[in-house]
């Protein structure tokens, strides 16, 4: 589709050029001045409209450009309190008195990073965190563009509910290269985005067994 459009328009352009030639041959009215004027007016209108239709970039990403790396590292070592609170999209404390717990996902072969911390105490509470670092595009942190995983406790099962497969498009406007050449800004670079940029951190009381074997989990190192 995206290739057909320009192709069609190139053909249209040639037809237009040909028509201009024929026009020149038989008609004495001049059109270039009008074309130029109309085009200029359209450009100026577009310039005037742009501020009303554009959205400001979100805040700049801090620290490591690839914030998910930091996140995984922190969670791996159980330093969940060090994680930027902005990354927390869900935080739950479930009261739990069963001896075992099952962790399930609404997706087969769920590759989500799950970090499990065994608490020292038996306080009958399972704490769950869902983190989402969003995406770092041009150094801007886009956090809200994906709907995150939702954690839910259903009797003895902790369910990770993924939303349906999401298809997200972000449109960013780029300043033209003669501008970025001198203003020191970088051009768009999306290649370093993380795998899925989410993680789940669970704090489970010492006396609760995790019953399922097939889910990938990392026990944190303290």
């Amino acid at each position: 589709m995206s290739l057909i459009l320009p192709a069609v328009l190139i053909i249209l352009f040639f037809i237009f050029a040909f028509m201009l030639k024929v026009w020149r041959k038989y008609v004495t009215v001049k059109i270039t001045h009008w074309l130029l004027m109309i085009y200029t007016v359209i450009l100026i209108i577009a310039m005037a409209v742009t501020p009303f239709i554009s959205t400001d970039f979100p805040a700049r990403a801090e620290g490591n450009k690839d914030s998910w790396l930091d996140l995984y590292k922190d969670l791996h070592f159980g330093a969940f309190d060090r994680v930027n609170p902005e990354y927390i999209v869900q935080r739950e404390v479930f009261d739990y008195d069963q001896p075992t717990i099952r962790i399930s996902s609404n997706r087969e072969e769920d590759g989500t990073h799950i970090y499990v911390e065994r608490k020292d105490t038996n306080d009958g509470k399972i704490e769950g965190f869902v983190y989402n670092t969003g995406f770092n595009i041009n150094g801007y942190q886009f956090t809200d563009i994906l709907e995150p995983i939702h954690l839910e406790l259903n009797y003895d099962t902790l369910e990770m509910n993924h939303p349906a497969i999401q298809d997200v498009t972000i449109a960013i406007t780029e300043k033209e290269f003669p501008i970025t050449q001198f203003n020191g800004q970088k051009r768009t670079n999306v290649t370093t985005m993380g795998p899925d940029n989410q993680a789940i951190y669970l704090r489970i009381p010492a006396n609760v067994e995790i019953s399922n074997k097939h889910i990938n989990m990392t026990y944190v190192e303290k």
Binding site: I137, I165, D167, I170, A171, T173, V190, T191
Partner: peptide
Amino acid sequence: SGSSSSYFTLTVRSYS
């Protein structure tokens, strides 16, 4: 440019 995993496809279009 895009990025995708099994959960999403992200497309970044830059307009200039």
